[in-house]
């Protein structure tokens, strides 16, 4: 099943999610409302809500609770993005000025805190305490993953396992939660909920690896941010770590990528990573996670859900932005 078809299949449910986002993210304060709207209108692929809707609904009757979980997940994601832009000092996101760029760091802080509160408030309307326990633990780990990312800036001694643990926390966990909570609130059996959580983890790992690949390969005007942004910032992602493990490149790469490196060193480092063959290797790992996610879907009894999730994960690997 193609991504576009899945979107069409869930068009009405996604519209309800958009409506919830619009209603709940709307602030009384006009500047806060504008900042929130900037984020909403920047759109994004709404991957997390879609995972939650598929896992929670697929062949089942409409559930407002699933839509609330889906919208809350997206709001939490938006809150992390607006704060991430302060951490990364990013001026652009998806090709548009960030809240930080338009309104300053403080406004970005308040917008993120506001959205996080609205997300939890929306979730509090769902009468299922397990949802909160899982979500809260996930957010704690997400924060720890983000702190570890900063800790590992320019740290060439970190291994691939450190990278994988980091992306598990900072990305895969929220996608896993999207599947798990969607399924749970939608009334899936415990066994299926567990399987979907594992599936979401594998799909989320593939998603982040592809994201890290796109940082090197994506056209700046499509991705909406400068090429090699992670490396310039000192964030050593899988392609860089794999390239550095090549005996002929490692030393040079380590010497180039350091705090305060000039632009020409960053450019050379990016060229070295691209030419090293590390991108293909990273892509193979993403494919393996994708295969794993498909394998895990075997435990899901609903055929339509399996097909739709497969379609969605295939898109993750093929996407170009």
């Amino acid at each position: 099943m193609e991504f576009h078809d899945i979107y069409l299949l869930y068009r009405r449910e996604l519209e309800r999610v958009e409506q919830l986002l619009d209603e709940r993210a709307h602030a009384e304060h006009s500047d806060l409302a504008k900042a929130g709207r900037t984020l909403l209108e920047a759109g994004g692929k709404r991957i997390r809500p879609l995972f939650a809707l598929i896992c929670g609904l697929g062949e089942r009757a409409w559930s407002e609770d699933v839509a609330k979980v889906a919208a809350a997940l997206e709001m939490i994601h938006m809150a992390t993005l607006v704060h991430d832009d302060v951490i990364d000092r990013a001026d652009l996101r998806r090709g548009k000025p960030t809240v930080r760029k338009s309104y300053g760091n403080l406004a970005a802080m308040y917008t993120g805190d506001y959205l996080f509160a609205r997300a939890i408030q929306l979730l509090a309307e769902v009468d299922n305490l397990a949802v909160h326990r899982l979500m809260a633990r996930g957010i704690v780990l997400l924060c720890e993953g983000e702190i570890e990312q900063i800790e590992d800036f320019y740290n060439w001694s970190q291994g691939v396992m450190t990278y994988l643990r980091r992306i598990h926390r900072k990305t895969a966990l929220l996608i896993s939660l999207s599947c798990q909570l969607g399924a749970m609130v939608g009334g899936a059996q415990e066994r299926e909920v567990a399987a979907l959580a594992r599936f979401g983890h594998a799909a989320g790992m593939a998603f982040q690896i592809v994201d890290d690949l796109l940082d090197f390969t994506g056209a700046a005007e499509i991705v909406g941010k400068p090429v090699g942004g992670d490396l310039r910032q000192g964030n050593l992602t899988l392609p860089a770590l794999l390239a550095a493990s090549r005996p002929e490149l490692g030393q040079r790469l380590r010497a180039l990528v350091r705090e305060g490196m000039p632009d020409e060193d960053a450019e050379e480092a990016i060229r070295l990573v691209v030419a090293s063959g590390a991108l293909a290797e990273a892509e193979r790992l993403a494919e393996r996670y994708l295969e794993k996610s498909r394998h895990l879907l075997g435990a899901v009894t609903r055929e339509a859900v399996r097909e739709q999730l497969m379609g969605l994960t295939s898109f993750i690997i093929r996407r170009r932005y």
């Binding site: 992390t80 704060h83 302060v86 951490i87 990364d88 802080m109 993120g112 805190d113 996080f116 939890i120 305490l129 909160h132 326990r133 979500m135 809260a136 633990r137 957010i139 704690v140 997400l142 924060c143 720890e144 983000e146 702190i147 900063i150």
Partner: peptide, 19 residues
Amino acid sequence: GLVVLAGDYDSSKYYLILA
């Protein structure tokens, strides 16, 4: 960046306790 995350970390723990 760490100040941003310190605040987020505190808020995540608040949510954890209430959950």
